[in-house]
């Protein structure tokens, strides 16, 4: 049960982080309508994942490696673009948002930004969701310990959701500058992990052939099968033994973007309604 708990936590946490931060972000902007749209999107994504996994299960099929890896890799890159967009927006508007702006609601976030954020939450769920659902059905089919296995996996996903919810609650309360700073750094790491994962997926199907030797053994941080590893994987997005290409892609995102998010503001940007 611990085994499947850890897998559920690992698969759910990254999506929960993104959804939690997007939800807090929308609430901070007083955009309740967008928040509702986001939850509908997330529910649809979960339903779509279960539907696809169920259909595959009934057909006795798996997606071929090329389709699977291309799908996950490309969605990871789209999610990176979404997160980057969010970071830039937070950076440009963060220092200008005062709590009184929250009351002004709707005008704070342009419709296009809202759609992008809702889409990002949807993507975050659907990307890992299909594989997770396939994994859940595989336990139902094959494991000698079905009950405990399924319970563990669902508890793992639930624990991830609770963490996402905690971020949402915390994010909706703490002061806005700190919220943007903390979530900004978290998002930088999550997005860098998505870059590394995209490289990993593309390498599996031969789209990237450079730098494929193992670079470093991170099992001391990411010991497979532990709760700590699940959390580290969700935050860092790295394999236990990443390749040089994965490490390089990860660093190429983390270094400039951390600097971008944390560098002190030289001047206060006037409030501009985007």
């Amino acid at each position: 049960m611990l085994t499947t708990f850890v897998i559920g936590l690992r698969e759910g946490l990254e999506a929960a982080l993104i959804v939690g931060i997007v939800a807090a972000f929308l609430v901070r902007n007083g955009d309740r309508r967008a928040l509702r749209a986001m939850w509908i999107g997330v529910a649809l994504a979960v339903a779509a994942c279960l539907g696809v996994a169920l259909a595959l299960n009934v057909a006795g099929q798996r997606l071929p490696l090329t389709a699977r890896a291309a799908f996950e890799g490309i969605l990871a890159l789209v999610a990176v673009a979404g997160v980057t967009y969010m970071l830039v927006w937070m950076r440009q508007h963060g220092s200008a948002i005062h709590s009184d702006l929250e009351a002004k609601a709707e005008s704070a976030l342009a419709k296009s930004s809202m759609v992008a954020l809702v889409g990002l939450a949807f993507l975050a769920v659907i990307r890992e969701g299909i594989e997770t659902a396939v994994f859940l059905f595989a336990i139902l089919d094959g494991s000698s310990r079905v009950g405990a296995g399924i319970t563990g996996a669902i508890l793992g996903i639930a624990a991830a959701s609770v963490l996402g919810y905690a971020i949402y609650r915390g994010g909706a309360k703490i002061d806005v500058a700190r919220f943007f700073r903390v979530t900004g750094v978290v998002l930088v790491f999550v997005a860098a992990g998505l870059v590394a994962m995209a490289i990993h997926e593309f390498a599996e199907i031969g789209w990237i052939t450079w730098g494929q030797s193992p670079a470093v053994d991170l099992t001391f941080i990411i010991a497979p099968g532990t709760v700590r590893a699940s959390i580290a994987t969700a935050f860092l997005g790295l394999q236990a033994v990443p390749t040089y290409a994965e490490i390089l892609g990860w660093l190429a995102f983390v270094i400039p973007m951390t600097w971008y998010v944390l560098r002190p503001t030289t001047q206060r940007v006037p409030i501009s309604v985007n």
Binding site: T3, T4, I7, R62, P64, L65, F135, A138, I139, D141, G142, S143, S144, R145, G149, E204, I205, G206, T209, Q212, S213, P214, A215, V216, D217, T219, V241, T243
Partner: peptide, 24 residues
């Protein structure tokens, strides 16, 4: 680094996360 260096080999397919006692 404790893993087989498979760079240069073509992956045909894989299944990850096979639980103890699991069948896939």
């Amino acid at each position: 680094k404790n893993v087989a260096n498979v760079s240069g080999l073509t992956l045909i397919d894989e299944i990850e996360d096979i639980l103890p006692g699991g069948n896939v």
